[in-house]
Design a protein around this nucleic acid. Structure first.
Lengths: 207, 207
DNA sequence: TTACAATGTTAGAGTCTCTAACTTATATGT
DNA sequence: ACATATAAGTTAGAGACTCTAACATTGTAA
C-alpha cells in the first residue's frame, strides 16, 4: 500500500547511514528551494525517516545547515586547489584560475554558496566556518606573494589578495543575482578576470 | 490589568498608521535578529495588533520584507547621492565616496543590507528591486565616464564600473562578516578604496 | 546472554503563517 | 443627516514546522 512517490521503506529498524543522507538531502533542498525555504521535515521525508530522527544526529536545524555550509567550503577549496595543479608557480594564470573557480562554484551551487555566508555575521557561530574561509584567503595571499617572486607574504601581498578576494566575492554574488547577464556585461568573465588581475599583480615574477 | 511589557493599547479600534509602523517594526527586527529570524508575529506584538492584521496591508511575510528591502535600496542611494554633492564633477574622489557610502550602509545596517540581496537570485521576484539596483549601477557608470572626461558611457566605462561595483559589493559582505577586522587588514578602509580606485580610473579628467 | 548505548518511533507542546468569518470605524452618495 | 459600502481591525482555527519526552528496537560488549 506504499504510494509510488514515497521513499523506499526500510526493512531494518535502523537506517544505517542516516546522518550523511540527511546532510545530502539538506544540500539538495538548499539548492532547490534556497537556504530560507529549507525544512527539516522535508529532509526527513526524503531520507524516509520520522521528523524526530535528525535530532539523534544534530542539535538542531542550524547544525544541519552548518554541516552543509562547511562541506561547501571544503568542496570549493578542493576545486580551487585542483585547478591550480597544472599551472606553473608564480604565474598570474594561477590568480585568474582561483577567481574563476571561486565564481564557478558560486554559480554552480548558488544555494550552498549563499548558505556559506549566511551566518558569517552572527556572533554565536563556531570558528570552524571562519577558519575554513581564512585558509582559502591564505592561499590567495601566497599566490600573490609568489607572483612577486616572494616566498613570504608581506603586507602589500595581503592587501592585494584582499582586493582580489573582495572583487571575486562580490562578482560571485552579482553573478548569482543575475547581474552578469550578457546584456549587462560587455565582455566575458575570463576577460574580466584577466583585466582585474593585470591591474593588481605583475605579469610574471623575476626569478 | 495591562502588563508593563505590553505595548500601549489603542483606545481606537483602528490603528491609524499600521502599515508604516509594521514596516518599521520589520526593519528593526531584521536588524536585531537577522532576516532569517524575523517573524510577522513579533512585528505584530511590537505594533500592538493581532497577528492577522498585517494581511490587510501585505500579501504575505515576503511582501513585508520586500518593502523593507526596497526602502533600504532607496536609503542607500540617497546616502550615496548626498555624499556626492560637495565633490567636484569628474574627480576620482567621487568614485571613492560612492564606495565608502556603499560600505558604510552595509556595516551600519547589515541586516537590511543582507535582506536587499537575499532574493536577488530568485526568479519570482518583481523587477522593482532589480531596477533600484540597476539605477545605482548607472550612477557609477556615469561617474566613471566623467572621470575619463566623457559625457556618454562607453563599454569600457561599463566594465570599469562593474569592476568597482563588484569590489565594493564583496568588500561590504566581507566587512559585515568580520573579515575587515583590524588584525586582518594592514591598512584602513579609506586607503584601500583609494588604492583600488587609482588602479581603475585616472586621477583627473582632461577638460 | 544480558545489559547498555545508539538510533529509531510516536505523541504532543508550542510557534508560526495565513484564511475565514465576523466586528467596528470611516468614507461616500443622495 | 443618514444609510450603506468599504477599509481595517478582531477572534478562531487549519495546517506546517521545530524540537522534546517517552518508548521501541537493534547492535555491541562484558
Amino acid at each position: 500500500m506504499k504510494t509510488p512517490a514515497e521513499a523506499k521503506k526500510r526493512d531494518t529498524y535502523h537506517h544505517g547511514d542516516l546522518r550523511s543522507q540527511l546532510i545530502e538531502a539538506t544540500r539538495q533542498l538548499v539548492e532547490e528551494k534556497g537556504p530560507d525555504n529549507f525544512s527539516v521535515s522535508e529532509a526527513c521525508r526524503r531520507a524516509g525517516v520520522s521528523t524526530a530522527a535528525p535530532y539523534k544526529h544534530f542539535k538542531d536545524k542550524t547544525e544541519m545547515l552548518r554541516e552543509v555550509a562547511a562541506a561547501g567550503m571544503i568542496r570549493q577549496s578542493e576545486q580551487m586547489m585542483m585547478e591550480l595543479l597544472p599551472l606553473s608557480e608564480g604565474s598570474r594564470a594561477r590568480i585568474v584560475a582561483l577567481g574563476r573557480v571561486y565564481i564557478r562554484f558560486a554559480t554552480t551551487e548558488p544555494g550552498v554558496f549563499r548558505l556559506m555566508f549566511t551566518w558569517m555575521g552572527e556572533t554565536e557561530d563556531d570558528e570552524s566556518l571562519h577558519a575554513l574561509g581564512d585558509s582559502k584567503f591564505s592561499v590567495v595571499q601566497m599566490e600573490v606573494a609568489k607572483c612577486h617572486g616572494r616566498s613570504a607574504v608581506t603586507d602589500v601581498d595581503r592587501q592585494k589578495a584582499f582586493i582580489l578576494w573582495s572583487f571575486v566575492h562580490g562578482l560571485s554574488f552579482l553573478s548569482i543575482d543575475g547581474k552578469l547577464a550578457d546584456d549587462k556585461m560587455p565582455t566575458d568573465l575570463e576577460t574580466l578576470l584577466e583585466d582585474v588581475a593585470s591591474r593588481i599583480v605583475p605579469e610574471a615574477a623575476e626569478v
